[in-house]
Structures are given as C-alpha cells and as structure tokens.
Amino acid sequence: MMYKSWWKILASVFVLYTVVGGLLIKVPTLPILHESIRNLYFHVPMWFAMIVIYTVSVVYSIKYLISNDEKQDLIAVEAINVGLIFGFIGLSTGMIWAKFTWGDYWPNDPKLNSAAISTLMYLAYVVLRSSIDEEQKRAKISAVYNIFAYPIMVVLLFVLPRLTDSLHPGNGGNPGFGTYDLDSNMRLVFYPAVLGWILISVWMMTIRYRIRILENKNNQIN
C-alpha cells in the first residue's frame, strides 16, 4: 500500500507546505505587487496542473483510438473534467490578483483571453460528448476532437501571447519571473507548489476515474 501511494503523500505534504510556507516565508518587497506576490504560489501552479492534465487526457485519447478500450476513454474524460476545474480556479485566482495589481478584473491581456478560450474549447468537448448517445461512437468522436483541439490550445497558450504585448511576465518583451524577482526563497516554495498541485490533479483524476468504473459496474445488468 505504502509503495503505491507515496506520490499521494508527497502531493499532500507539498501542498500543505506551500499553503503554510507561501503565507509565512519572507517574499521580496516589490512595487505594485506587494504581498500579493504570494498568489504566485497558488495562481501559477493551477495552469501547470491544467496543462499537464490536459496532456494526460490527449495521451489517453490517442491510446483509446489505438486500442478501443473504454477505460482509456474514461481516463481522458475525467482528466478533462479535472482540467476544467483547475482552469476555472486559475481564472478566478488570476482575476482577483489582476484586480489588486492591474486595477481590473478582466484587463485586456492575451494570456487571459487565451486561457478563457481554451476553457471554452474544453467546455465544447463536454457538450460534444453529451450530444452523442451511443457510447462507443461518443468515445471515438470526442477523442478525435480532443486530439484535434490540443495543438491549437498549445498555440493559444504558448505562441500567441509571445507575439503580442502582455501584462504577464515573460511575454511581449516583459522579462519572465525567473529573470529578475523570483529569488531563491520563492523558488523554495514555488517549485514544490507546482509539483504538488500537478500530483493533486492526477490524484483527483484517478479518484473520479475509479468512481466512474464503479458506477458503470453498478449500472450493468447481471
């Protein structure tokens, strides 16, 4: 049991550590950001977790198309459901942060718009699934859409913001966080936070996947 769940313990320890450490450990005092810089530990890991979990979903969609195994489709769906949760939390933490630093809940920023559009893309995936009744057909068609949309999402999140001016660090000529103000103290909290939340997202996905498997078993006629 222990050797299988070591990563869940690791995830819990990391996230607990970042919640405590993120609020207590000293941060550099910067203009505009002030203490809100601590949101870095909570806002940014959401996006890391979201992108990782969407990537997991695409991998399982590809696996589904090759193997036609229903379980792989279930993993892909649940990964997207979890990814959507992280996307919404990422958007809302970002909006609150933006209100305090940039003065507006929704400043016209390419990263915000891209994140919102990629969330729309995966909401469309959910609607597409619910529009098809037949299970195998639903699994196949939604897997195709998932794989088709993924590279466009990558372009949205990683290429487009770099072509235009952005308020976010690391875009449109702004230096990235790492280059000027992410001091070693912050790294000490930030990296475990990213890893911890990624592991939490995978954990959530596996729980939801297992619930789905049990539900399917329950619904079967013996």
């Binding site: 891209s114 559009i117 990629s118 729309l120 893309m121 469309a124 609607v127 597409l128 529009s131 098809i132 057909k137 068609i141 195709v144 859409y145 088709f148 949309a149 466009i152 372009v155 949205l156 487009l160 072509l163 235009t164």
Partner: peptide, 29 residues
C-alpha cells in the same frame, strides 16, 4: 466531427469558434 454527432448547427459553431479564434486573431493582426 459535427456531422457524426447529430449534425446540428449549434454544435458546429461551439466546436469551431474556440478552435478558429487563435487563427482569426493572427489573421486580423
């Protein structure tokens, strides 16, 4: 994709808008 999924116009629009927006933004620029 939409033609396999009951083929309605709404589905075509909601599936294609998010995918075309990044391209559209570049084209408009």
């Amino acid at each position: 994709i939409a033609s396999k999924a009951n083929n309605n116009g709404t589905l075509m629009a909601i599936l294609s808008f998010p995918v075309i927006i990044p391209l559209l933004m570049l084209i408009i620029k």
